[in-house]
């Protein structure tokens, strides 16, 4: 088992920001841009700031889609940030993109009546039933930048939510998968603390959570 956190590095991602945050936390990490680089990683983080379609195209072109699917469905802990949350599901309205499909559900545009993109700090609350399972509470203000939100078929994967026009999932967890709609790497001390927690005790390498 390796010690490094692998940060997926692709054309439209913001892997440098995540690597800087991990460096600040003194967590060993390295960029991963080819399938063979996944070996030896303790976790993989898929960050993202771009569009779902472009992200999927980039991952597939570099062979990472298949390699990540094998590794994560085989138990390698996965942390998704923003687009890294959205691509977990079957399909996104953005670019009508087919996504990873590791979790059943879709990704849809924010409802009418709010400014899009959502840009800023929103109050996140752990959902009552599942909040305790995360290993660390997810309550507080975190930084969001998104035009789309996830609609999981199984609401049990939602561990935290926030409101923007309507309630939406702010964080999901299923097995060794943990992902947030907000930017852990840009949410100040609260984001860094949560990032550290999910990489140390919050995401287990194998087995189910409940």
């Amino acid at each position: 088992m390796g010690q490094d956190v692998g940060v997926i590095d692709y054309a439209a991602g913001n892997s440098p920001s995540v690597l800087r945050a991990l460096q600040h936390l003194s967590i060993p990490a390295r960029p991963v841009s080819r399938p063979e680089e996944i070996a030896g990683c303790s976790h993989v983080i898929l960050p993202g700031v771009g569009a779902a379609g472009a992200t999927m195209a980039s991952l597939t072109e570099s062979g990472l889609t298949a390699a990540l699917t094998d590794a994560v469905l085989g138990g390698l802990p996965y942390v998704g940030i923003c687009i890294g949350l959205q691509v977990l599901f079957d399909q996104s309205e953005e670019d009508d993109a087919k996504c990873l499909g590791w979790l059943p559900g879709t990704v849809r545009r924010l409802p009418a009546g709010v400014r899009v993109p959502q840009i800023g700090w929103n109050l996140v609350r752990s959902t009552a039933v599942h909040g305790a399972d995360v290993g660390t509470p997810i309550d507080g203000y975190f930084y969001f930048v998104n035009s789309y939100v996830v609609h999981p078929s199984d609401s049990a994967v939602v561990v935290a939510e926030a409101d923007y026009g309507c309630p939406f999932p702010a964080a999901v967890r299923s097995g060794s998968i943990f992902a947030t709609q907000f930017h852990l790497e840009k949410s100040g001390p609260a984001g860094l603390a949560l990032l550290r927690a999910v990489l140390t005790d919050g995401v287990r390498r194998e087995g189910a959570w409940c």
Binding site: Q118, G120, W121, N122, Y141, F144, A162, D163, Y164
Partner: peptide, 8 residues
């Protein structure tokens, strides 16, 4: 509970 205003 709403998106907070930002100070830049």
């Amino acid at each position: 509970m709403v998106l907070t205003r930002r100070l830049i």
